[in-house]
Design a binder for these strands. Structure first.
Lengths: 252, 252
DNA sequence: AATTTAAAACTGGTCAGACCAGTTGGTTAT
DNA sequence: ATAACCAACTGGTCTGACCAGTTTTAAATT
């Protein structure tokens, strides 16, 4: 074991021992370096390791903080530690949609055959809000609707996985639906798709619900693809050299 | 995000997408530094992050290597509390399978339409090993086969999600397939299913591949359900730190 | 020639000091 | 009081050197 490992171990120990509580600030790299009698490079390497393990989060100019153990279901604030990794890759958006397609489909399927009366009530409520809002200017209702569906599936794993994917989604693109071209035809299509999903679930038709959900996601994906081919800037990709610190700021 | 993160993303993507296979050596730090146009310090920090996530292992004087799949990656450790919540609840197993069903299906689908010649080669290799081994006494070949499929899908997100699910799987039950009742009929069924998946992918028939994969997972799930109803002890929950191996040895 | 040995030539590990780039808070000028 | 500004934080990156294992190469010995 190198010194770097030892340091990360000691830091981790420090955190776990209660010396440092979640969201608490960690001493600066220079301080740690001096206090532990080691170069700053080592400290940085150790911190990166902890960062990789999701133990801490680091912010330029502010410092490093102990990661909160539980994401706390906040809106778009934080996502899984590992999730950040894929975000920013150009292809990631479509990779995500390919996975989401199936999962949303399965969620709708299960919802259709498992939704309780309370689920149906919540779903209806979410759907009404959705219908009353412009789906292209506000993504939240859309969010709520899909969330209601997956929760009605009564599969915690599914809920968890989709939540993770949705977080990644937000990191890859500002807001999937919101960025779509506000053409009237498209707006109408999306509403129609939502209604189709909703009705299928309420009617207790799993197969139909699945198909409707899959078609919906696929439609969104295709729309984005079209937009992109038209030169619209939907996807950010800071991969190569002159990356310009694009897009999503955690605190905003 | 800093350059350091970007580098680790790029490396990660490279590894997950099959550019670098497990146990394969990663270029030296100095090489990477020059090739990616950054300082060696950055490379080291990026590597430490991957190291923290268990993606790679580093040895003084030798180099860094892609970690073998086996070691308990802290991947979905983000769901730490979640894990503890889920594990122990028998239903979790089936929740997992419900999700996996779709994902494996999608993986097979994509593999069928995207697999390169190298993918096919790896898949074939994995399949041969699978056929030569008793699927009920050793879960590793099964693992390898499914892994080869999902990697051939060329969707890093899918790879990641399925890996996470698989980890949760291992926590819920020692070894899904391995614990099945070694009835001759079942053994034959499973082999047949594997072959069906394999052929569909090689033949480039996405729809058929998906169906085969879904049927396979569903079959396993049903088998477990049957077993459980017969009073067999299928579901275990080892999550505790101490008890190392009481009962079934994962044949490590 | 075959074998042993020693020396390059790798690899990662650590250090030092410098400079860039965000963030923050206090001081000053308005 | 408010705005503008500057100084002192914070992390981010670069450079080049040197130490410490490992492997390869070439010389020395048998």
């Amino acid at each position: 074991m190198g010194i770097s490992q030892e340091i990360s171990y000691r830091l981790e120990q420090l955190i776990l021992d209660g010396g440092l509580a979640p969201d608490q600030k960690i001493p600066s790299e220079r301080q740690l370096a001096e206090r532990m009698g080691v170069s700053r490079a080592i400290i940085r390497e150790a911190l990166h390791e902890l960062q990789g393990r999701g133990v801490i989060d680091t912010f330029h100019g502010k410092g490093s903080f102990v990661a909160s153990i539980v994401p706390a279901t906040r809106d778009l604030d934080e996502s899984g530690p590992l999730m950040h990794l894929f975000a920013g890759h150009p292809r990631t958006m479509y990779d995500l949609l390919e996975v989401r397609e199936q999962l949303e489909g399965q969620a709708a399927f299960l919802a259709a055959q498992r939704a309780t009366s309370m689920d149906r009530h919540r779903l209806t409520k979410a759907f009404r809000i959705l219908e009353e809002t412009d789906p292209l200017s506000n993504a939240k209702p859309d969010h709520g609707f899909h969330q209601a569906i997956v929760e009605a599936s009564h599969n915690p794993i599914l809920v968890h996985v989709l939540k993770g994917l949705k977080n990644m989604m937000l990191l890859s693109v500002q807001a999937s639906v919101a960025n779509l071209n506000p053409r009237e035809a498209m707006r109408h299509s999306i509403m129609k798709q939502h209604r189709r999903i909703y009705k299928a679930i309420l009617a207790g038709k799993p197969a139909a619900a699945r198909k409707a959900a899959i078609d919906h996601v696929r439609f969104v994906a295709d729309s984005m693809r079209d937009l992109e081919s038209q030169g619209a800037e939907v996807i950010r990709m800071p991969l190569d050299a002159k990356h310009s610190n694009s897009g999503v700021t955690p605190s905003a």
